[in-house]
Write a protein that binds this DNA or RNA. Structure first.
Length: 774
DNA sequence: CAGTTGCTGTTTTTT
DNA sequence: ACAGCAACTG
């Protein structure tokens, strides 16, 4: 261990680190060295004789957990650090629940449902209750259920709560409580917990089994919570229970950066912390090491507009820096172009690398314009967020097999794969199985196993039997084979891998590669010894499944060092920093979001979001907005964001590529804006006037619709051969590339240059006319 | 059954 | 615009 680790800290930081006993709240302003304090504090605890086994550190993201782990290891050496419990709330609780789940009636190999699985269960139930899913939108209903669990409200309590019932009544969804109840029972029956259950059931476990509670209270003598401002009531209560004996609870957070209330986080947890415990010590980290004075000034001015904050005064010794640059453009496309141009220019002028830039937006949909422009200038970029690897269909399908092997009660997983690849088990059959399962109160799987008793037709019965036999054959492997071996076998005997391999479309290729990547990652998992050095025992399929469900794309930090411009939502940027930040789309109804301008609380959260965006920047910050942009396919005119008006004039530089606060002239105020880029040579050929999206464009149907030749008449499928030029009524002219299928059901692969590329055409149905023989 | 067409609902998102 | 889906049809 480094001997002088305390010397690297400022006075406040040191005070936080050496306060080891009793409740401690660290208010850590943006860029004030929060992670450093947390990790050093852990090291200091151990230095002072605390056993690593007795320390629990909880974070929100895997990424934060990983970073913390690595940094502690750096101070202590990996040897001592490996017994620490550092992880996300969800992963730590999943791990604890694994051993005690049977106490609650769950298998210890319970499945973890991600939100897609959970919504799908909700949907099933809404259908079973014959409710209209226009009213009972699975998404909304699931959010209600999720919120209930995050406030530790049982289905019974939910249905009895007058206020809640009123709300559901008003939303004309009075049966939400009923759905919650059925949902909970269904998950239980399926042997599955959703993300919220990992918290909720943990709480129930601690509450119902005093011996379990005592065990963990004794074990976790020191507890640390990161991002405390984003905790929800469930997390709050669990922490309170776990820490009740020793009260060595250290929470770290910044109320100014609380941006997850839409997911049940309550800022009250941090605002109230002092009242929750006696003798709370509060340490404020107010020195910012990240940003220039200019940037910090803006951040402070903006956040000061919020009410009810913990008082603090963030300051820095850093240089004054440049003013914040405000850029107005006419359209969203032009915004993209201007930002890309500015990046190119800044790279030249200030010798930045690509990785020094980050483009932050409020919504994922905004990324498009920036992608296009960056690509045009050949600037490499990467978008963070969006669909995670594990949410891709082919990945979920494959994993569904593994889930079923592990837990046959997992109905959601069975339904995903029972007819994938196609094995002749259609919608009707699945519905019947569901009904039988509900009627007899047995699991979906049991109905499949005992299909004979339910009088399916012979063909269907064969198909069901085949499926059951196959799954069982995989299950036998569990004893002697690790996750990778089983996964390989699944890929082989289901033909999934082969099928995707033979699919030569672009999507097919991507899917094939994704499956390969999945298999590789499983292999990697089985080959990496875990922290305790165990290899065999811990490399089971069960462990693997629990891990990956809690993993997300945001955790893929492997190419963190690659030299690319980063694009992400402001939410995703929390905790990160970049030399140059563009906060784009600074417009009313976009940012602040139109959904969040109806209450003070919501607006304040948007403002905190803006604060987070501003404080990501180290040396240069650009704010951009467009007079008009396409949203939902509609051209929309937006006023500049009210947040721009909250930035005092003296901190702004409007000269940069134009910029004026108001939409003065309708078309950008003449020659003053955007011109500096037009005069410069860019890597791309000059675009000329931006191809206005307002200009009449050919409608999409006109592009893809081909007008058939007057003499069009379908030719006999049997006469078609590869190499022929053909005409299709809709796709236009094309060339037959190959031919497959049974003689009486021939399928041609045809390349239509103007009709969307390669298509598979079933000749019995779609009609082709031969234009020219080979 | 599978491919096509038409309709809907579109913040933020970790786990 | 666009994706994800339910209903339709060859």
């Amino acid at each position: 261990m480094k001997a002088n680790y305390l010397d690297d800290l400022n006075e406040r930081q040191r005070e936080a680190v050496i306060t080891l006993q009793g409740p401690l709240m660290i208010i850590a302003g943006a860029g004030s060295g929060k992670t450093k304090v947390l990790t050093t504090r852990i090291a200091h605890l151990m230095r002072n004789g605390v056993d690593a086994f007795n320390i629990l550190a909880l974070t929100f993201t895997n990424k934060a957990a990983k970073e913390m782990k690595e940094r502690v290891e750096k101070i202590l050496g990996g040897h001592e650090a490996r017994n620490l419990y550092i992880g996300t709330f969800h992963s730590v609780f999943a791990r604890l629940l694994r051993s005690d789940a049977p106490k609650l009636g769950y298998p210890s190999d319970f499945t973890i449902y991600d939100s897609d699985d959970a919504k799908s269960v909700v949907k099933t139930i809404v259908n079973e209750l014959n409710l209209d899913d226009k009213h009972y939108k699975p998404n909304l209903v699931y959010n209600r259920i999720s919120a209930a669990k995050n406030s530790l409200m049982s289905p019974e309590a939910y249905q009895q709560d007058y206020y809640i019932q009123q709300e559901d009544q008003r939303a004309s969804r009075p049966l939400t409580g009923k759905i919650y109840d059925m949902y909970a029972k269904r998950c239980f029956k399926n042997g599955a917990m959703d993300f919220d259950d990992l918290l909720y059931k943990m709480y129930v476990l601690l509450k119902s089994f005093p011996d379990v509670l005592a065990k963990y209270q004794h074990k976790f003598k020191y507890i640390m919570i990161d991002e405390y401002q984003d905790t929800n009531p469930a997390q709050y209560e669990i922490v309170k229970l776990l820490g009740a004996v020793h009260e060595n609870i250290c929470v770290v957070g910044d109320d100014a950066q609380s941006i997850y209330s839409f997911r049940g986080a309550t800022i009250q947890n941090i605002l109230q912390f002092e009242k929750d415990y006696d003798d709370v010590k509060v340490v404020k980290l107010e020195q910012n090491y990240r940003s220039t004075k200019s940037i910090l000034n803006v951040a402070n001015e903006v956040i000061a507009k919020n009410k009810g904050q913990i008082e603090k005064n963030l300051w820095t010794d850093n240089a004054e820096g440049e003013k914040i640059k405000l850029i107005r453009t006419n359209t969203d496309n032009e915004e993209g172009k201007t930002v890309a141009d500015t990046i190119a220019e800044q790279k030249l002028r200030n010798h930045y690398a690509n990785r020094d830039f980050c483009i932050l937006y409020r919504t994922n949909a905004q990324s498009r314009a920036f992608e296009e422009s960056l690509r045009r200038l050949a600037i490499p970029y990467r978008i963070f967020g969006g669909l995670s690897f594990y949410q891709r269909k082919e990945i979920k399908d494959f994993i569904a097999y593994l889930r079923v092997i592990m837990n046959s009660r997992d109905e959601e997983a069975i339904k995903r794969i029972i007819n994938y690849p196609v094995r002749g088990i259609g919608k009707t059959t699945i519905e019947k199985v569901s009904i039988y399962a509900n009627d007899q109160n047995i699991t979906f799987w049991e109905v499949l196993e005992r299909a004979k008793e339910f009088g399916f037709k012979a063909g269907t019965l064969d198909a069901l039997d085949g499926f059951v036999t196959m799954i069982k054959s995989f299950r036998i492997m569990l004893d002697k084979h690790n996750a990778y071996e089983i996964a390989l076998q699944v890929g082989k005997s289901t033909n999934i891998v082969k099928e995707l391999f033979n699919d030569k479309t672009t999507e097919g290729l991507a899917r094939y590669e994704n499956i390969q990547e999945l298999l590789n990652s499983i292999k990697e998992f089985t080959e990496t010894p875990n922290e305790d050095g165990e290899l065999e025992d811990n490399k089971s399929l069960g462990i693997y499944l629990q891990q990956i469900t809690l993993l997300t794309d945001a955790d893929n930090t492997n190419d963190e060092n690659s030299d690319v411009v980063k694009l992400m939502t402001i939410h995703a940027a929390k905790g990160l920093e970049f030399p140059v930040v563009f906060t784009v789309g600074m417009e009313e109804s976009l940012f602040p979001s139109g959904m969040s301008i109806n209450s003070r609380e919501e607006l304040e959260e948007e403002r905190r979001l803006f604060y987070v965006a501003v404080t990501r920047a180290k040396s240069r910050l650009f704010l951009t907005y467009a007079n008009s942009r396409y949203r939902f396919g509609q051209l929309q005119q937006n006023e500049p964001s009210r947040f721009l008006e909250e930035v005092p004039e003296q901190f702004l530089d409007r000269s940069y590529a134009g910029g004026g606060l108001r939409n003065s002239g309708s078309l950008g105020g003449g020659a003053s804006w955007g011109n500096m880029f037009d005069k410069r040579k860019t890597a791309a050929p000059p675009q000329g006037p931006q191809p206005a999206r307002t200009a009449p464009r050919p409608t999409s149907s006109a592009v893809s619709n081909h007008t058939p030749s007057p003499n069009f008449a379908a030719d006999n499928p049997h006469e078609m051969e590869p190499g022929m030029d053909v005409e299709h009524q809709k796709f236009g002219f094309g060339k037959i590339l190959s031919m497959e299928g049974a003689p009486n059901n021939r399928i041609a692969t045809v390349m239509f240059p103007k009709g969307g590329g390669e298509k598979k055409i079933m000749l019995n149905y779609a009609k082709l006319m031969i234009v020219r023989q080979q």
